[in-house]
């Protein structure tokens, strides 16, 4: 999907410049003129070097439905993260340390590289599981308390809640 719908080069350049400039404004959080001009120039240099790898779609990725689903995703993710954190906290304070660690694998349905990156990071940030490696569409997950080892079951257990929404954003 991302290879056939690449935006043209100037559009991608402009897109990266705007993103870098916004990041600069956020980091300095001031609107003084010298700061803004410096930021614009620095963003220009950065964009010139990195626009080819920074973005593929340009502005096409920004749609109202995408923003809405991203919002839903973030809320969903924060909820899962807090829940899982309490789970790990419970394990850590239990004197007998009830863990059964191991590395399991599953296959994802996602095809987009960004989506895979987001999924891997989300899995890592929810404690109890983290991504050791991603090879093509196979994920290797270190799991603190393994309950199932079959890839299908693992997929349902770990990735399903994230992927349901990611598929809506990226496909």
């Amino acid at each position: 999907m991302q290879s056939k719908s690449l935006a043209s080069k100037p559009v991608r350049f402009l897109y990266s410049w705007i993103v870098f400039f916004i990041v600069w404004l956020a980091f300095t959080s001031t609107l003084a003129l010298p700061e803004v001009i410096t930021g614009a120039v620095v963003a220009l240099i950065l964009a010139a070097f990195s626009y080819e790898t920074f973005t593929g779609w340009g502005f096409k990725g920004i749609k109202l439905s995408n923003l809405w689903w991203s919002f839903v995703y973030v809320i969903n993710f924060l909820w899962l993260m807090v829940k899982a954190n309490f789970n790990v906290a419970r394990i850590v304070v239990t004197p007998s340390l009830p863990i059964n660690p191991g590395i399991v694998e599953f296959e994802t349905k996602l095809t987009n590289e960004y989506a895979k990156m987001v999924l891997a990071n989300s899995i890592t940030l929810t404690p109890g599981t983290f991504t050791v490696d991603v090879v093509d569409n196979r994920y290797y997950i270190h799991w603190l308390d393994v309950t199932v080892t079959d890839p299908e079951e693992v997929y349902k257990e770990i990735a399903e809640p994230f992927e349901r929404i990611l598929l809506k954003i990226f496909n």
Partner: peptide
């Protein structure tokens, strides 16, 4: 606490970095 108690590097990464992140 997780970093000190858990048995190996991978489990420690679980408890350590992520509980700290939250």
């Amino acid at each position: 606490l997780g970093i000190v108690r858990l048995p190996d590097i991978y489990c420690r990464l679980q408890a350590g970095t992520k509980a700290s992140t939250l």
